[in-house]
């Protein structure tokens, strides 16, 4: 039961969806649409369980006085405050949007912008022409970095066209080749999942 039922579920729903792609009959199409809608409903729970886990992990951290447990209190308070603001005032509530605008936006945006600094130090310390291949990478990178911003156009008016050529010719070719490889890999993975050969996503795959 524990291993057969999941295989039946994955095979049954999977192959129905595969076949329904090719059969335009109304009953089949409606059923497939219903399954899709269920899927989206279930996916919502994936997020709920994520939030549930955050609460659980941080409660445990506080209970067992693990390292930095004090911060977990801050985290949980923020979570509760945000949820209270949202569920009492609604997603249009002033306080909820106030926190979104003045806490979530600046923190999210700043976190990402830290990368500007890391990219700079990587450029200085890690980005080296150690081999012919790396040299090629380097030259392309420098051309794109200069030619794609206004300073490149200012230096030489043909710069943007040169960069566009790099993007549409060698870049497109390599990206497409890589894409084909990835697509094949994903199809083979999908097939194994549907056939129940690949079970690692269920955890281990053995009973």
């Amino acid at each position: 039961m524990k291993s057969i039922l999941p295989i039946i579920v994955v095979f049954g729903f999977g192959f129905f969806m595969l076949v329904s792609f090719f059969i335009p009959l109304k009953g089949i199409q409606d059923t497939s649409q219903t399954f899709q809608n269920w899927y989206i409903g279930v996916m919502a729970f994936f997020i709920f369980i994520g939030i549930f886990n955050i609460i659980k992990i941080n409660l445990e951290k506080i209970q067992r006085r693990l390292r930095d447990w004090q911060y977990s209190i801050i985290l949980l308070i923020c979570l509760l405050v945000m949820m209270a603001a949202g569920f009492i005032g609604g997603p249009e509530g002033g306080l909820f949007l106030y926190f979104y605008k003045n806490v979530q936006i600046p923190l999210g945006a700043t976190m990402f912008s830290l990368l500007a600094f890391f990219v700079a130090s990587a450029a200085f310390r890690a980005f080296r022409a150690r081999s012919p291949e790396a040299t090629l990478l380097l030259i392309a990178a420098v051309l794109v970095m200069i030619g794609r911003v206004p300073i490149g156009y200012w230096i030489w008016h043909g710069f943007p066209n040169l960069v566009e050529w790099i993007m549409t010719v060698p870049n497109t070719a390599a990206k497409r080749g890589i894409l084909f490889g990835i697509d094949l890999g994903m199809i083979s993975m999908g097939l194994r999942v549907l056939l129940g050969i690949e079970r690692s996503y269920m955890g281990g795959g053995k009973e």
């Binding site: 450029a123 200085f124 200069i146």
Partner: peptide
């Protein structure tokens, strides 16, 4: 500036 860094690093 970054192009300068790359050149300098190399």
């Amino acid at each position: 500036l970054l192009v300068l860094f790359i050149i300098l690093g190399n």
